[in-house]
Design a protein around this nucleic acid. Structure first.
Lengths: 220, 220
DNA sequence: ACAAATTGGAGAGCACTGCTCTTGACGTCG
DNA sequence: CGACGTCAAGAGCAGTGCTCTCCAATTTGT
């Protein structure tokens, strides 16, 4: 990878990375609004120079989004457990911990799409990594089938070619449900919707994870 | 209410409303970024005049947020059904339909907090209306208790004084879970996270609503 | 009814934003 | 070595939130 041939290429790659790093840093401190000029200022360069590396602010955002998906995906894929049930728990907590450690990046990928919103195709593959882990765990656990409406069944069938296993439609639907549930809970916690109810949420989260494991049918 | 004594008072109330209406309109068309100047321009007044009515952009946003919570709360409270199960379904679909009809307002209240994020106390009461409806339905359905970890049990007990009934801790925890689930699914649908999987989501949503009703223990 | 006090609106201005264009310097390659 | 491609910088445009001052209108107190 470091065989970027010319010195110019290497410098370019490095600066691109530095811009992203600084942008991430500002995202973490100053919140959601990311200013190209502030990034440039902090890097000691003219604001116009940034545009040599990212054609627009949205492109920088998109790059950060893809990186965030990858980072989260890697964290979840790295989670392990002795049993399928333990794997399930581990993966769920990996998502939450990553979210708590990268609040603003989480908001970036799972929050409301801030700008004019366009989901470039480059984001869907990295975005799919996390749910695929859950599909994998459910498959390894032998999650059972269950009744689903015909339309949902058809959607599950259409989805199957992209999956790492042959999860039955009923199980797949429940995994997808659990995934939206997981996301909903983490978002509520991060965005402050459940202050005053289940707050702190650690225990409630663990409880919910177990409930979802039961719901999907991952043996205890 | 229209006894705003002086003509000035009435004019002020009207203009305040007009500003919010125009802001909502721009929110619906131009997306998330709301420009005070654009609102003023569209209303034919100087941008500085807006500040007589809302001290800052964030205050306008907050007003819109409160209105959105109220609008959603009213819509859900107005939903009806013959049986508890039908009420449950009706309430869930009321949330989704409102969200689909007011995408940007939904993003405003349930999306990532865009600015420096401050949740003024005025927002929590209207925000609680929707989950309270679900608690009410679960109570009317006689949702059964279930095992929950001690910490969660304690949180449920602490929450009970604010509730319209004496839902047991196990049922309350499951209702809260279903609420985060509902929110997660609607957000995924609106924010485009499940394009390519369960899309269109109508059937999947109905399926999920039923699953959650079973989970909470609302008789079929 | 008249003067005093309060209020709403307009305009200029500050500091900031994303983005474009031009200019000049540097590195790379034929 | 010369030509080309690349990069950084600066100025500038249009837009933003917000503040301040000034003036007209309305409400209020006497």
């Amino acid at each position: 990878m470091n065989a970027g041939r010319t010195a110019r290429d290497r410098a370019r790659a490095e600066l691109t990375q530095e811009i992203k790093d600084e942008a991430r840093r500002q995202l973490a401190t100053d919140g959601a609004q990311l200013s190209l000029r502030a990034v440039a200022r902090s890097l000691g360069m003219a604001s116009s120079a940034i545009y040599r590396y990212f054609p627009s602010r949205d492109d920088l955002l998109t790059a950060l989004i893809i990186d965030a998906y990858s980072s989260l995906g890697a964290a979840v894929e790295a989670s392990t457990g002795d049993s399928p049930r333990a794997q399930w728990r581990s993966a769920c907590h990996a998502v939450r911990n990553w979210a708590l450690d990268h609040r603003h990046e989480y908001a970036l990928i799972y929050g409301s799409p801030v700008p004019g919103y366009r989901a470039p195709q480059d984001t869907v593959a990295p975005a799919a990594r996390v749910p695929l882990v859950f599909v994998g765990v459910a498959g390894a656990a032998g999650a059972p089938d269950s009744d689903v409406p015909p339309v949902v069944h058809a959607q599950a069938d259409a989805l199957r070619p992209a999956l790492p296993n042959d999860l039955p439609a009923g199980a797949l639907a429940r995994v997808l449900l659990a995934w939206t549930q997981l996301f909903g809970m983490i978002s509520f916690e991060l965005f402050g919707q459940l202050v005053g109810s289940a707050d702190p949420a650690d225990e409630f989260f663990a409880y919910a994870v177990d409930q979802m494991a039961d719901f999907v049918g991952i043996a205890r």
